[in-house]
């Protein structure tokens, strides 16, 4: 991917993982095969995830597109991340397994809602793409990016972190087993370095 994808407003570091032009994920780009994100999707499928609640994030674009295309999954677009915590609780009450896909900024929106899986001793699984921690251009992402892991831990969520692409699927698979077999809340933080920092170009 070369400079031809930069249109003078903003784009991303030229990693093969993310392809963004003019502020929106380029249509169709998220359906292109992507090594570690496809592996994470397969891990979710092996974990028998049926409901995928999400607030869109470029780092989750491939997972979201695949969830929508998967007959055995229901992808549910949310207006705010805390809805996904409640969705997952309802799914579990009905016998389904759910995952919540969000960006680190969404962690703060979830805090009180986490009392639901915690009080009810229900499983909870979230995949969090990190912003504000590596190569971040937008200072507004930094406070919640910096606090996302500690805030989750303070609420009693078990936090796992992925730094390298080759660890992503295995970490998610282990987190899903931990969440659903031991009925605990688990969040996997996907490092910004893994996703690719957004670069704004004037």
């Amino acid at each position: 991917m070369g400079d031809s994808h930069l249109d003078g407003r903003w784009s991303v570091l030229p990693t093969p993982d993310l392809w963004i032009v003019s502020g929106v994920a380029k249509h169709g780009a998220s359906m292109e095969p992507n090594g570690w994100q496809d592996a994470v999707f397969e891990a979710l499928r092996r974990a028998r995830i049926r409901q995928v609640g999400y607030v869109p994030d470029a780092g989750h674009a491939r997972l979201i597109a695949r969830a929508h295309a998967e007959a055995d999954m229901r992808a549910v677009v949310l207006t705010t991340e805390e809805e996904g915590v409640a969705l997952a609780a309802g799914a579990w009450l009905g016998g389904d397994r759910a995952v919540l896909l969000m960006q680190s900024s969404g962690v703060g929106n979830c805090v009180n809602m986490l009392s639901l899986p915690l009080n009810c001793r229900m499983p909870f699984l979230a995949l969090v793409t990190m912003r504000g921690e590596w190569g971040e251009f937008n200072p507004w992402q930094v406070p919640m990016g910096n606090a996302a892991g500690p805030v989750l831990a303070a609420m009693g969520v078990l936090v796992r972190r992925v730094e390298r692409a080759e660890d992503a699927a295995e970490t998610v698979e282990g987190a899903a087993a931990l969440a659903f077999d031991s009925a605990v809340p688990v969040a996997v933080l996907l490092a910004q370095r893994l996703i690719g920092a957004k670069v704004w170009v004037r």
């Binding site: 049926r50 409640a86 969705l87 309802g90 009450l93 639901l116």
Partner: peptide, 20 residues
């Protein structure tokens, strides 16, 4: 019955209705 998690009821209903 929800005794907390204010704002959750409708979304718990959605997850449940999708599952069943």
């Amino acid at each position: 019955y929800l005794w907390g998690a204010m704002g959750a009821a409708a979304m718990v209903g959605l997850g449940l209705a999708l599952a069943r």
